[in-house]
Amino acid sequence: MPITYTSGEQIEVYRFSLPVTVGVPLIALFLQAFLPRRIFSIFDLPLLVTIFFAMARRNPISGLLTGAAIGLAQDMLGPYPIGIYGIAKTVVGYGASSLGAKLDVENAGARLLVTLAFYLVHQAVFFTVARGMVNLTLNWSWSHGILAGLANGIVGMVLYFVLDKFKQRT
């Protein structure tokens, strides 16, 4: 798996236009809420968008803010108290941007593994907050978590490939 370590000078930092910055997360949130839950509930499109923007910008602050904003918006549409997804995606955004600043994860395999890993991190933070703070009774399944992480990784590879078209060099 070609995850190459590069120096900060060699890593390109991208930025996105405002419509893409606003529109893509909204579309992801919308699709997450609109698509049939029975089929698409396993996917977390806001998480994939968070990871993509965080890794592309390679800025931890930008990444955590993007994650926080997307997560809070997702919380607003969900049944749980606002902040659960926000905290989880904040952590993921921060981690993805921090990882993107140190590793070149431009190829598909690296993106699959990174997405799988951050999906698990996201779920871990989510379950921790949900159980520890909100006292929600949620059950964790490793098999389901790994399968869902792989599924999101596969979808993420396609999604990242599409969103790469909107990258702008700084």
């Binding site: 926080a68 809070l72 108290p81 902040g83 905290i87 952590v91 703070m133 006292n135």
Partner: peptide
């Protein structure tokens, strides 16, 4: 540690918001 401080600050705000929500709920 700016990035980390901001992360903690954002997380803290969200946790605070969660705590308020849990208390109010």
């Amino acid at each position: 540690y700016r990035n980390l401080i901001i992360l903690v600050g954002v997380l803290f705000l969200q946790v605070l918001g969660l705590a308020v929500q849990v208390k109010r709920s």
